[in-house]
C-alpha cells in the first residue's frame, strides 16, 4: 500500500511538474500578447475586424471557432499559406474572401505572437504558440 501511495505521489508531482513546464510564464504571455496585438493591428484587423468577429459572408470570425482554438499546426499553415476563400464554414455560413499567405511577410516570431494573441483575445482562451512550432511547420511545408 505504501509503495502504491509513493508511486502515486511521484506521479502527481511529476505531472504537476510537467504541467508547470508546459505552462507559459505569465511574463511571456504578456509580452507575446503585446507583440501579437501590434502584428494583428497591422496585418489582420482590416479583414478580421477590431473585435475579431470578421465580416459576414466574407472574412471568418476568429472567436470561439475550432479553426483558431483547435489544431495549432493547421492554424499555422493557414497563416503561412493562406486560403483561396470558401474553405471555412462555420454553422452553415461560408466565408468567401481569400486569405493572403504570410510566409514572406511575417517571421516565425511574429506568427507565433499573433496566434498567441488571437487564441487569447476576444473571449478566446487557449495555449500559446511558440516560435519553434511555427518554424517546424514552415520547414515541413517547404
Amino acid at each position: 500500500m505504501k509503495r502504491v501511495l509513493f508511486a502515486l505521489l511521484v506521479l502527481v508531482i511529476a505531472s504537476a511538474f510537467g504541467v508547470q513546464q508546459q505552462k507559459p510564464q505569465p511574463g511571456n504571455l504578456k509580452a507575446a500578447m503585446t507583440r501579437g496585438k501590434t502584428v494583428y493591428e497591422a496585418t489582420c484587423l482590416a479583414c478580421h475586424q477590431p473585435d475579431g468577429l470578421g465580416v459576414q459572408n466574407m472574412n471568418p470570425p476568429l472567436v470561439k471557432t475550432k479553426w483558431v482554438l483547435g489544431d495549432k499546426k493547421a492554424l499555422i499553415k493557414i497563416v503561412l499559406k493562406g486560403l483561396q476563400g470558401g474553405e471555412i464554414e462555420i454553422d452553415g455560413d461560408k466565408f468567401h474572401n481569400p486569405m493572403p499567405p504570410q510566409e514572406s511577410t511575417l517571421s516565425d516570431q511574429e506568427i507565433a505572437d499573433v496566434l498567441t494573441y488571437i487564441r487569447n483575445s476576444f473571449g478566446n482562451k487557449a495555449s500559446l504558440v511558440s516560435m519553434g512550432e511555427v518554424k517546424a511547420v514552415r520547414a515541413k511545408l517547404k
Binding site: E41, L45, A46, C47, Q49, P50, V55, M58, N59
Partner: peptide, 8 residues
C-alpha cells in the same frame, strides 16, 4: 449595406 473596410 454598411462598410467593413473602413476599419480602424
Amino acid at each position: 449595406h454598411g462598410s467593413w473596410n473602413r476599419s480602424p
